[in-house]
Design a protein around this nucleic acid. Structure first.
Lengths: 333, 333
DNA sequence: ATGAAAGCGCTAACAG
DNA sequence: CTGTTAGCGCTTTCAT
């Protein structure tokens, strides 16, 4: 506290060598006599020296910092993704600047400004707005996570369309004909919707998509969902299955079903999407799609690191296979 | 990309002034003629200039960086806490370095090294190991989140003991006499346990505490929990309530209860702890304690900012009031 | 009201 | 094998 932190020059003085030499042993560069190395190490230990990463970053014009932007890390999907990314990045010697955009473009813009000012080596974003897309002076490589195309950055996703087609086929095979699709997405071309529509078309079933408004951006709102479901159930033919675009939505549906006295899966089958660790504990019975968190983090980080090494970023989406976990909210196959 | 990023000197040249002047308009310091200001602003806009935060940090010997260390942000409690902290810190002009310790002391140590090397202005940690406690050369102020005492840093928690006493009283008032307490804590002096024990003693009831081993550190493991519960139910007098030290544990108990055909709350009452947004959506029926996430973040950040301003950190625990959310996994009062 | 010069802590030529 | 010198991009005395 009171003692100023020792700097490289102090170590040099203590060891009786030049700053350059200390820098060399620090970075293990060039030829050093063992004797010198030992002396320097001793001095460093003596003083409790810790190199200043900021000075190093300035000199090397590389911060080893990666920014990650998500709408909300309180959400199990983003939280788990953030964890997987941090673990990978830390393993590669990178540091993570966490940005929570709360789904607000203004916040995202501020965060982007901040990241660029801090000379980040890369940005990984799962934020929903398109502000990264047309950002002036964006020097850092950008990779998106589970974002639809419509931008020039590589995107890492699971095989949304394929797995959703598969999941829908499975629900149909389990006896459901009248299937409701609940989504929080406002994009009619969302891959999950397309996959769903394909499977429905194959079976000559009419897709029915409902988009209840989420509250606070990412949290399903029972006030919105319940009336929507009530209405669907008061229609002539009540649905036999509800497929949801994420596990939280599915949980809201299951809660509604309990209140309404519907038996799952007898009266109603329910599926989710995401399969976060939290979701698997909260709802082990939920049939859902488990996203490949680890693999997605690996690919996203690999892309950033490649870009740092000067390789051009591949455009387009990289899709990693997700797995379906059939449980008790659907009937046996 | 190909064009090197403009620096302050470039702006100066373009505006026909000295670097000092540009720095002055940037920081709005000293007296500048409006004319000069305008010229500089024009030049900055022209070149798309963005000040380099790294250089600034080096010069000012302050990074405006705060490290936050949690066992796993995939866990709803930590994820929501991380979000609340990031929001507060960003609002105060600070940046967040995210560290996921995965509950491993070696990882925590590496993260601490990294944070100190990066000249963080403060550290907020909820990691469980005690490595921060005796860390050599820790210059940054540290605040812990929901950690038991036993260290010199201020701690921000909810009023664990009080609210747990209240919750236990409530469960007793709801008719339960044989109450099981499930916890993931290995500390017999944990405040939540103490509060529980107090309420039990008041009612002259015998406390029964069970500590199933978590898997991977923070996730309750049904393989561990189910046999423990089974055994309790095979004992002479089956419990009438299970109180859990977090919502995930409660979810595991509810899942077990469903499989065993127990009706909640008739045959068995269940309570949780944490009340994260995710938990409220996954399990709206769960009676639980809702932690004051926002207030805790506010206090933690306030403490760090005060320390940055040179005020000494207050020692001891700051307890914020939590609220009890009685729902349907307990009987009506 | 503005500028020149020095320096934050480190590393990269370039000597020797 | 080691040291001298210059400079990363910015801010800050101290002049004027």
């Amino acid at each position: 506290m009171t003692v100023p932190q020792p700097k490289l020059a102090d170590v040099a003085a203590a060891a009786g060598v030049s700053p350059t030499t200390v820098s060399r042993v620090l970075n293990d560069r060039g030829y050093l006599s063992q004797k010198t190395k030992d002396a320097v190490h001793a001095a460093m230990a003596e003083l409790g020296y810790r190199p200043n990463a900021i000075a190093r970053s300035l000199q090397q014009r590389s911060s080893r910092l990666v920014g990650i932007i998500f709408p909300t890390v309180a959400h199990p999907f983003y939280g788990q993704m953030a964890e997987a990314l941090e673990t990978r990045l830390a393993g590669a010697g990178y540091k993570v600047l966490l940005c929570d955009s709360a789904g607000r473009p203004d916040r995202e813009r501020r965060h982007l400004d901040m990241l660029l000012a801090n000379q980040v080596d890369g940005i990984i974003t799962g934020a929903h707005s398109q502000v990264v897309g047309d950002y002036p002076g964006l020097r850092a490589p950008v990779v998106t996570i589970d974002r639809p195309k419509g931008h020039d950055f590589p995107d890492i996703s699971c095989d949304n369309r394929t797995v959703m087609r598969e999941l829908t086929r499975g629900v149909i095979a389990r006896g459901a004909r009248r299937i409701l699709h609940l989504t929080s997405s406002r994009d009619p071309q969302a891959p999950r919707l397309l996959g769903h529509a394909e499977a429905m078309a194959e079976a000559r079933l009419e897709p029915a998509v409902l988009r209840p408004e989420p509250s606070r951006g990412w949290w399903p709102d029972p006030e919105q969902i319940d009336p929507v479901l009530d209405r669907a159930w008061e229609a002539a033919a009540a649905p036999e299955a509800v497929m949801c675009s994420n596990d939280l939505l599915a949980a809201a549906v299951l809660s509604w079903a309990r209140r309404r006295g519907l038996r799952v899966p007898r009266d109603l089958q329910v599926t989710g999407f995401d399969g976060s660790a939290a979701s698997r504990i909260f709802y082990p019975e939920l049939s859902t799609v488990v996203q490949p968190y680890g693999a997605m983090a690996r690919e996203a980080v690999a892309a950033i690191l490649a870009a740092v090494d000067g390789e051009p970023l591949p455009a387009g989406t990289r899709e990693l296979p997700a797995t379906i976990d059939w449980r008790e909210t659907t009937r046996p196959a």
